[in-house]
Nucleic acid binder design. Structure first.
Lengths: 200, 200
DNA sequence: TCCACTAGTTAATGAGCGTTAACGCAACTC
DNA sequence: GAGTTGCGTTAACGCTCATTAACTAGTGGA
């Protein structure tokens, strides 16, 4: 547990820079020499830390999915109030992630197909569990939603929350907390509107 | 104008298949031989129709952005009721596009960086105009939104609407019209919630 | 009938890039 | 102080892939 605040290890440096570069120019658009240069070593030196370029992407994507799922489960376990507060907690967690790790969010649904079958299956499974976790909570807050509708709504809200990379880079927007609040309100509004049946 | 219902020309075939393949595996992940094979000719034969692989992507992305902007402007011009109805019309148009041309929607924000500077600038400009068109209408319907907030909200709603590629491929969802209605309601709900000021 | 043009073909070229080989060198251990 | 191990380096290999060259068959006027 002492590693938490230690200087980042080489592996972590590499992963961070690789994530940034992959997000900027795509997995195939980035060369190993570039990744190496970004951490001050050159090209093949990376192979002391990773089996290959694919392995970096795999570790990144599995890590993201796992982190999201773990965070979601923790929030479910720690939930005190009712489902309402829990949903707010999930939204808040997802927004924090989207705002703090934009490159990872970008990677998350862009480069999944570049993985080996086994890794891709694992990532898909983690993603599915995360979605199902949300679906349950959403249906508790909005019982009028059918399960397929709730699942669609969750995917769509993820699309909304994950739009942060498209928001102006520096700060034409109301600042971090303002953006987080705006996204939060919009997510709740979207779920609420999903619930009203159109025929009634 | 007779070309509308004619058999698709070779160029159009190629563009359609290229869009599908680029969306599935990324620009760099697809070879020209594959694109050729998808339309029944082989590899270098494509060069009778396009200057190169880059040119295909450029034409696709410029086409998408242009179509969106043109459609949006047409709706603004044809608007009869107030801003409310116009906003609904814009949302409807965007949803139609997202549902009918999923591969293009995917490409739209994934592969922009692979373009030559001039093309990228053009696409960005078209996108920006499309966003601004929405921002104006949104602010008319929700006057309490500041301009930056409205712009963020528009981007986020685009994220929501463009999430269609992530919705289950065949039809675990309520069918096309059901999905369209769900997305529409969520978009309106998101905008509405963006408008309420948190402090009040 | 000949010419020109369109739309293909296969073979060759050349660049880029992931990966491996071979080697160097501090730091730590016994 | 000799050996091992961790972490780099540069050079070379081999493959993929976009692009070009060279060539061919059909088609539609003049």
């Amino acid at each position: 547990m002492a590693t938490r605040t230690d200087a980042p290890t080489r592996r972590e440096q590499i992963l961070r820079e690789a994530a940034r570069l992959f997000a900027e120019r795509g997995f195939h658009g980035v060369g190993v020499d570039e990744i190496g240069a970004a951490v001050g070593i050159s090209g093949p030196g990376l192979y002391r830390h990773f089996a290959g370029k694919d392995a970096m992407l795999a570790e990144l994507l599995v890590g993201i999915s796992g982190q999201l799922l773990t965070g979601g489960r923790r929030r479910v376990a720690e939930a005190e109030g009712g489902a309402e507060g829990l949903l707010d907690s999930l939204i808040e967690g997802h927004i924090d992630f989207a705002l703090d790790d934009r490159p990872l969010i970008t990677l998350h649904d862009r480069e999944l197909d570049r993985l080996r079958d086994s890794d891709r299956k694992l990532v898909r499974q983690l993603q599915r569990q995360y979605v199902e976790l949300w679906v349950e909570v959403v249906r508790e807050v909005y019982p009028e939603l059918t399960e397929p509708a709730a699942r669609s709504a969750v995917h769509s809200v993820f699309g909304l929350l994950n739009s942060t990379p498209h928001l102006g880079r520096p700060g034409a927007l109301p600042g971090r907390t303002g953006t987080a609040e705006l996204l939060h309100r919009m997510a709740r509004g979207a779920f609420g509107a999903a619930g009203v049946t159109p025929g009634a």
